[in-house]
């Protein structure tokens, strides 16, 4: 088994993600350079957080044109697993591997804090180690995490069970306050119809060791590893 983490110029959670898979979970993990056309035979591709290309046009908008993204598209089309975290999620939206788009947070400020998210769909390869409705404590750190999709898209997402995670209160209930960035339907993470592409704004790699205050991110990382 081998995990690949894509390095875009401006990625800054790339080595945190590699650390989580390699040092914490003990799985072989390699960096994948955005200019290459080589996935090095990995079994899963992770698009990490950060500010690819400075997020200068829109978050994730320029990274989508990186040479390696052609291979990632094909990889995903074959049903192989792709996980986008934060900026990686934004790239997946720009790539149209997941539906919708991100707007600026509702308070118009960057937001870094621990949040509670609820596992909505536990039957995916990214959530199988969690229970349905389980509340995970995982940090977010983003400016553009206010999820938007047109009504018909949103309906399709809900009907198809594509909502993987929602922002919630620690007890699992939904509220205006717990929907920290203003996302439609409190959406924190999505999965595609085929179930192999997942994107989420919270950072599981920042919640994978006790010393960092939470290990809940491991439910997600370990689910993926176990599915390979």
């Amino acid at each position: 088994m081998k995990i690949g983490v894509v390095l875009f110029p401006g990625s800054n959670c790339d080595f945190d993600t590699i650390h989580a898979f390699k040092e914490v979970l003990g799985k072989p993990t390699v960096p994948l350079w955005h200019k290459d056309h080589d996935l090095q035979g990995v079994d899963a591709v992770i698009l990490p957080g950060g500010f690819s290309y400075g997020d200068y046009l829109r978050s994730g908008a320029i990274a989508r044109f990186s040479p390696l993204m052609q291979e990632v598209r094909e990889f995903a089309a074959k049903g192989r697993p792709v996980l986008g975290i934060c900026n990686g999620f934004q790239v997946l939206l720009e790539l149209e591997l997941l539906p919708g788009a991100m707007l600026r947070n509702k308070n118009l400020k960057f937001l870094c804090r621990h949040v509670s998210i609820k596992v909505e769909n536990e039957k995916t390869r990214f959530t199988r180690k969690a229970r349905k409705g389980q509340v995970l404590n995982i940090p977010i750190a983003h400016f553009d995490g206010n999820y938007y999709a047109p009504p018909e898209t949103l309906k399709a997402i809900e009907d198809g069970g594509q909502v993987a995670f929602r922002y919630c209160e620690p007890d699992g209930s939904l509220s205006e306050a717990s929907n920290v960035n203003g996302s439609l339907h409190s959406i924190a993470g999505l999965i595609n119809k085929a179930g192999n592409v997942c994107g989420l704004m919270p950072h599981p790699e920042r919640a994978s060791e006790k010393i960092l205050g939470s290990e809940d991110g491991r439910f997600i990382l370990e689910s993926l590893v176990e599915s390979l």
């Binding site: 046009l57 829109r58 908008a61 044109f65 919708g100 788009a101 707007l103 938007y148 047109p150």
Partner: peptide
């Protein structure tokens, strides 16, 4: 294709 995201 690039400058605008047609979804929003």
């Amino acid at each position: 294709k690039v400058l605008a995201n047609p979804i929003i």
